[in-house]
Design a protein around this nucleic acid. Sequence first.
DNA 1: TGCGTATGTAACGAACCTAGTTACATATAT
DNA 2: ATATATGTAACTAGGTTCGTTACATACGCA
Lengths: 141, 141
Amino acid sequence: MPTSSRFAVAVHILTFLAADRKRAHRSEEIAASVGTNPSVVRRILGDLSRAGLTSSQLGKGGGALLARGPKKISLLDVFCAVEEQSLIAMHRTPPSQSCEIGRVIQPVLQSMAATAEQAFFGTLEGHSLKDVARSVKTAAA
Amino acid sequence: MPTSSRFAVAVHILTFLAADRKRAHRSEEIAASVGTNPSVVRRILGDLSRAGLTSSQLGKGGGALLARGPKKISLLDVFCAVEEQSLIAMHRTPPSQSCEIGRVIQPVLQSMAATAEQAFFGTLEGHSLKDVARSVKTAAA
DNA sequence: TGCGTATGTAACGAACCTAGTTACATATAT
DNA sequence: ATATATGTAACTAGGTTCGTTACATACGCA
């Protein structure tokens, strides 16, 4: 249902950066690994740097770097940086206010949705970029 | 992020049916409460009946009915009936197979995504249509 | 200072999805 | 028979995503 793949691409980018923190990586280099256009990578790197997860350097030898250790970057940080916060959408057009159910269904639903979303986000928070990098290393071996 | 409001509408429909189980309710009647077109309601009722949550009757006095008690319908049942199962999408185009990270990132991500999704679904499973109906009644009072 | 390099961002299009609308065949009650 | 209600197809408008191109801006280095 999620029509966006930004989270997957963002984690890919960050995992790429985490694999070699000794130097900056150009968007072109990252894009080759992700399998997309450098501009798409830069667009997502923009979100990530606005969220304080990466930094970028211009000019020769420039590119993107992790702004902090992979152990200190949770998948929730990544998700919040690049995706909408809410997993469950309400009615597009407001329900009837002259119906008792229509009048109150949205707040009721939203509070239940919030508990489910919290469970989702809590789990994401429990996984760090370091965990991903480790799993990737193991799987690649 | 969810571009679909089907879950919200489906819960609304089912709550409407749960509020008066003594008779069948026409799509037109439900649509007035939801604030949409009867055909939209029938489309979603199609999903719900395929999932065994509702049944329908044709002809005069016809309409939709809950197929079982609201205590026996979980929000997970509803979600699965009308929405995609996966909350996290992978790359649209496959990542580079010549890159070690690109080769394994998807399964790694998917397994972590699965734990978060399970937390989400588990919470939805813990709420029944009866809970929603009760909250609506309380909120309406 | 000037050149090459890399980012950040805007703009545009193709593809896709959602939901609103209309239409109609089919089944049912009376 | 007739009126009624569903189920579903077809079409449209609107929104979102992502790939692409383009370019202004900033930085390193000779």
